[in-house]
Simulated assay, not measured.
Amino acid sequence: MMEYKFKDIVSNCCERIDPSESDSIPYVGLEHISADTFNIQTYGKSTDVKGQKFIMKKGDVLFGRRRAYQRKVAIAPFDGIFSAHGMIFRPKQVIDESLLPFFIRSDAFMNKAISLSVGSLSPTLNWGAIKDITFSIPSKEIQPELSSLLWKIEDDIERLKEQIQSLDILVKSRFIEMFGNLDINDKQWKMSTIGESAKVPLHYGSTASAVDYDSET
């Protein structure tokens, strides 16, 4: 492990553009980033936003510096613009491009980022607060092997989430096939208590029984 200041690990890319001065291009805001995946699922257009934004390039690591405790990290899937409430990181020579997203999402980075955020309602992290913080980085020789392992785990997790989502859709569709599209507000449904619908043994439904049972233990 080697120690480097954060400014020697990444470049903080802060080239700005006014969306009103450009054609319609993809826009990624913090609302488009999820804490549990590097993938961008949805995005907007530059014509829908106002104020200066950052210019991002495909492959850049996007980080939500506003409310950093939400742990929002993503990889830019295309060239476009990014929220000014975020930061755009590009790797320097000391860290492999494929390892950088995992480093930014790691507890080692996130815990320091969160602790250095300022503000009460919307705590925000500034580049000046972290650029000189020291982090330990694996040697360049083992980084490709390490990133390969981490990406395999990441891919397995994404595949599992897709399977769970597919199973959820299947279960819902089978339920509708069996029982129809039920609406609990439909007047044909009658509300009733458990006692009206099933027999409950006294020793489960009686407060006295529960007290007696507790006293024995």
Rank of each mutant, 00 (worst) to 15 (best):
K5C: 08
D8G: 09
S11M: 08
S11N: 14
P26L: 09
V28P: 04
A35N: 15
D36T: 12
N39Q: 11
G44K: 01
S46P: 01
S46Y: 04
D48T: 10
G59I: 09
D60F: 00
V61D: 03
R67C: 03
R71M: 07
D79N: 14
D79H: 07
D79C: 03
H85E: 15
M87V: 00
I88L: 09
F89C: 03
F89R: 03
V94M: 01
L100N: 06
L116D: 05
G119K: 06
G119A: 10
S120C: 05
S120F: 07
D132I: 00
I133L: 11
I133C: 14
I137T: 10
S139D: 15
S139C: 04
E141A: 06
I142C: 02
I142G: 00
Q143L: 00
Q143R: 04
E145G: 08
L146F: 08
L149A: 09
K152E: 15
K152P: 08
I153K: 02
E154N: 15
E154K: 04
D156K: 06
I157R: 14
I157M: 02
E158V: 05
R159I: 10
L160Y: 07
I164P: 01
I164S: 04
L170A: 14
K172H: 13
F179I: 08
G180N: 09
Q188C: 08
W189E: 07
T193F: 06
G195I: 06
S197L: 11
S197E: 14
A198R: 15
L202A: 14
Y204S: 00
S206D: 13
T207C: 05
D212K: 05
